[in-house]
Design a protein around this nucleic acid. Structure first.
Length: 573
RNA sequence: CGGAGCGUAGCUCAGCCUGGCUAGAGCACUUGGUUUGGGACCAAGACGUCGCAGGUUCGAAUCCUGUCGCUCCGACCA
């Protein structure tokens, strides 16, 4: 393509509303333009890069045995009612009404649609396994769209759904997708790591997220140095650095005065000297409107994602001081669960068998000592609720965990029968028994992946596209565009030959000064620039400049061969 | 939704505190000229409901009220 004919509106200055570098470069390189918050138009170059990411995804999905379909983005709300997610996901669902006032949903994801399809089309174990995928626009009423394509109201996702007869089969389908994801991100030129993750509103048995390490990422990943363990902090666990006391003092809980003491630290200091590990922290939450006591060890922090996983709902918040006083008769700082039977109590696993603990007495200015969990507190639910911190021992290796930020580009879920049961996607097995299909689902944020590539691969001058996803692979830069001059003649000739070889080539035929062309080609980030100027041409040479590499002169006679071999090197072939 | 900030030319911003004349600069754009190996220079020109609505005032980009939009931090997620 000819630069002069394409819309490539590069910007010299950073747009005021772009905060992170990949967002700035998307705008500056003329790849996208904002329509309004969370909604973007893909310009010619941006679309070309996006299409290349999509092509890699399609090739790897096909290779892994998945088949492409295309489902409606507009969906009837009744299938969402059936799956139970109409309520659960109401905050992100875009809803629209038609002329007869019937309500529809703009699909944020497609478990309901694909399961409905499969329920009607698959009825025998002989048809299994199956895996269907699509590349499609998703709609989510995000609470806060941000960072350009990173979190948008409308975005392109590749979603795949596997259907198996057995759990073992589903496991194998999961494994295949997991492997395919690794190949996809590698081919896109980004380093993504798989981490254990929370399943959230999608639900299911377990899941892995594919994370691109980046300071601007919205997630935190806990991992061991050697890569033996990696998990989203929402899900991560660690070994305890210090054990929880379990020695029964033999005494019943004894109330003692602690005037003005309302923090763990204060109680840990003189004259009380109660180690934080021997204290019970009692947090009061309003879970689906009900006062609930959440118990943590004094030195631990609550992880709210784990609380959601434990309770099966995200509909909760910390209670206010007044709500707490009304329920327990004391203010934060003096709270405890001893003798509390009228409210449910949830406790963190680290408190199992805890004994000789100290906790608030539900009376301002007083605490209990000698509290045994088994004997004195009615715990209704035990669950891992603890937020891991950097430096705590890895659950696998025992070495100190590290924590770093990352961008989630993909997520694979082992779903089980969460959707096949309510939507009645059943099949007959060898013995004629009717059983629910065992499902998995697998998403890649395609537009987000494209931005993640930029976030991970850029320098002060602009984007550094990997060959695999670059909008154009080669940029031919004639320094003079006189139509019948030797420079332009050679440029046109190379342009023809490269295109004939199937190399995506752009020729910068703009009548601009060299500096402008160099800056623009670096900003957009084409992997290889072929510079043609009168000076070097006089020596029978032109210049090859890999983006991010060093300029090298090549002979005109062997230009095509040199370019092709440089591309091979850049592609890592 | 809670907290913080910003809305002035296509873009980046100044002017606002302390109200006053035709509302400014740089980049981009148009025309002419000079340039031509790292975002050129000269000259001329075009481009504004100062986000919107209301108020205060002789007079509002500037002060007040409301409203809309955008960005950032938190809850949500590919």
């Amino acid at each position: 393509m000819r630069w002069s004919q394409l819309l490539i509106p590069t910007l010299k200055e950073n747009p005021a509303d772009a905060e992170i570098v990949s967002h700035q470069l998307l705008l500056r390189a003329g790849l996208i333009r904002k329509l309004t918050g969370g909604l973007y138009t893909f310009l010619p170059l941006g679309l070309r890069a996006l299409r290349k990411v999509e092509r890699i995804i399609r090739e790897e999905m096909d290779r892994a045995g998945a088949q492409e379909v295309l489902m409606p983005a507009l969906q009837p709300s009744d299938i969402w009612q059936k799956s139970g997610r109409y309520e659960l996901m109401q905050d992100v669902l875009f809803k629209v009404k038609d002329r007869s006032r019937k309500e529809w949903v703009l699909g944020p994801t497609h478990e309901e649609v694909i399961t409905t399809l499969v329920a009607g089309e698959i009825s025998s174990y002989r048809q299994l396994p199956k895996n269907f995928y699509q590349v499609q626009t998703k709609f989510r009423d995000e609470i806060r769209p941000r960072f350009g394509l990173m979190r948008a109201k409308e975005f392109i996702m590749k979603d795949a759904y596997s259907f198996d007869a057995t759990d073992e089969g589903a496991q194998e389908s999961y494994r295949k997708m997991y492997a395919a994801y690794g190949r996809i991100f590698k081919r896109c030129g980004i380093q993504a790591i798989a981490v254990e993750a929370d399943t959230g509103v999608i639900g299911g048995k377990f899941s892995h997220e594919f994370m691109v390490p980046a300071e601007t990422g919205e997630n935190e990943v806990a991992y061991s140095e050697g890569g033996e363990y990696a998990a989203n902090v929402e899900k991560a666990t660690s070994r305890l650095t210090t054990p929880t006391p379990t020695v029964d003092t033999g005494s019943a809980p004894g109330k003692f005065p602690t005037p003005g003491i309302v923090t763990i630290e204060a109680l840990a200091s003189a004259p009380y000297n109660v180690a934080a590990t021997a204290q019970l922290k009692t947090l009061i939450y309003l879970i689906e409107g009900k006062i609930t006591l959440v118990m943590m060890r004094g030195d631990h922090q609550l992880n709210e994602t784990k609380l959601a996983a434990a309770t099966g709902t995200a509909n909760f918040r910390a209670a206010t001081s007044d709500e707490i006083f009304a329920a327990l008769g004391a203010r934060p700082g003096s709270l405890g669960a001893v003798g509390v039977t009228q409210h449910p109590v949830i406790a963190d696993e680290s408190l199992r068998n805890a004994a000789g603990m100290t906790t608030g007495a539900n009376e301002d200015g007083f605490h209990f000592r000698d509290v045994n969990l088994d004997r004195d507190i009615k715990v209704g639910l035990w669950h891992d609720l603890r937020l891991v911190k950097a430096g705590e021992p890895c659950p696998v290796t025992g070495t100190p965990l590290k924590i770093r930020r990352a961008i989630e580009v993909g997520h694979v879920f082992k779903l089980g029968t969460k959707y096949s049961e309510p939507l009645e996607a059943l099949y007959l097995d060898e013995t004629g028994q009717r059983k629910p299909l065992v499902m998995g689902c697998y998403g890649i944020g395609v537009t987000r992946t494209m931005q993640a590539v930029i976030e991970q691969s850029h320098d002060k001058d602009g984007i550094i596209w990997p060959v695999s996803v670059a909008p154009f692979t080669v940029c031919i830069t004639p320094l003079s565009v006189l139509a019948d001059g030797p420079v332009m003649k050679l440029a046109e000739e190379l342009y023809q030959k490269l295109n004939d070889q199937g190399i995506d080539t752009i020729i910068d035929d703009r009548d601009d000064r060299p500096g402008v062309k160099f800056k623009d080609s670096e900003l957009v980030g084409f992997p290889l620039r072929v510079g043609i100027g009168e000076k070097s041409l006089a020596k029978g040479e032109i210049e090859l400049k890999p983006r991010g590499g060093v300029m090298q002169p090549i002979k005109v006679e062997s230009a095509i061969e040199s370019i092709l071999s440089a591309l091979k090197t850049l592609s890592g072939i």
